[in-house]
């Protein structure tokens, strides 16, 4: 069972009563091993890469994007505080492996590519890592964490929850069956 299914099944078990924060704990805990070593620093270039990647995954549109929501700094902080040393090392190795891939395929460092090429490179990486049919380069799986933290950081941020989603702090009631029109935003939890 992959992590997503495992999380879903537990959420279902609880009658769907798990909150977003609890779900994110679950997502995390399925993949965690206790290892020594904490807080590997990010270089400026690594931070720039994370920033650009988060920006491409969740761009600013008619609502704020990942960068507006402070997601890049969130990713760095989360990697340093919430992941064991081995996971952090893998993340850094992954960024390097991805940069090498860019040099091989697009003949330059990721940060030096044009915006269009950066987007293409991330789209390819996304497919490479998340398409179950594709052979996975182990180092590149760092992207799973990057994407997960980008979505977590964004959709639980104030702009993400209140502008991209709809946030109601105190619903006050439960209506089990209300009409929904395509395009209406989902509830933040």
């Amino acid at each position: 069972m992959d992590r997503r299914d495992a999380v879903k099944s537990v959420a279902i078990l609880m009658g769907g009563v798990l909150s977003a924060s609890t779900l994110s704990v679950m997502l995390d805990s399925c993949n965690t091993t206790l290892k020594e070593g904490n807080g590997i620093n990010f270089t400026d270039d690594e931070k720039k890469m994370v920033t650009r990647m988060a920006d491409i995954i969740i761009p600013k549109t008619d609502t704020p994007g990942a960068v507006d929501a402070g997601v890049p700094a969130f990713i760095v902080m989360m990697m340093q505080e919430c992941y064991p040393g081995a996971d952090q090392q893998q993340f850094h190795a992954g960024l390097a492996a991805f940069d090498k891939l860019c040099r091989d395929q697009y003949k330059d460092h990721f940060l030096k590519l044009s915006s269009d090429k950066q987007e293409t490179a991330i789209a390819d990486l996304d497919k490479m890592v998340l398409d179950k049919k594709e052979q996975q380069d182990k180092d590149l799986t760092f992207y799973r964490k990057l994407k997960e933290l980008t979505l977590l950081g964004f959709f639980t941020s104030e702009p993400g929850a209140t502008e991209t989603l709809r946030y109601v702090q105190i619903p006050g009631r439960y209506d089990g069956c209300v009409p929904y029109q395509k395009g209406e935003r989902a509830w933040a939890r």
Partner: peptide, 9 residues
């Protein structure tokens, strides 16, 4: 698809 809910039960 045209149904949703309100509130977090």
């Amino acid at each position: 698809d045209d149904k949703y809910y309100f509130g977090r039960r």
